[in-house]
Amino acid sequence: MSSPLAVLEAKKQQAKKNLEEIGYFSDVKIYVGMATCEIAAGSNHVMEVFQNAVKEDKSLKGVYLSQKGCAGRCNLEPTVEIYQKGKDPVKYVKVTAENAKIIIEKHIKKGEVIKEWVGK
């Protein structure tokens, strides 16, 4: 009989596969804060913008979009993180639905980081 750690290792491999299937290891990943506090600050509208974009915009094919819990920056919510392979993660703060659209156009499509919206 295999040990619990061995069983867990198999589960980890399976988890990796499952994550692969949903595009977790994509070159571009977007995380939107979706805790109660973030939603109260309007992150559900931001999430909607990203969801629609990922679904409908062909140039965003393969982009991984996920929710996340709150990192603790109450005064700067909603927050959005953009991970691009080989680059430092960019963390946007006080994101609105309007800003989200601009982030998609400028940052995700053209690679231009919008510095004034990044948290310090």
Binding site: A15, K16, N18, L19, Y24, Y31, G33, S66, Q67, K68, G69, C70, A71, G72, T79
Partner: peptide, 12 residues
């Protein structure tokens, strides 16, 4: 893990 993983995805 708060703010790093998807809380509703056990795989994460």
């Amino acid at each position: 893990n708060c703010g790093l993983i998807d809380p509703e995805n056990i795989n994460d």
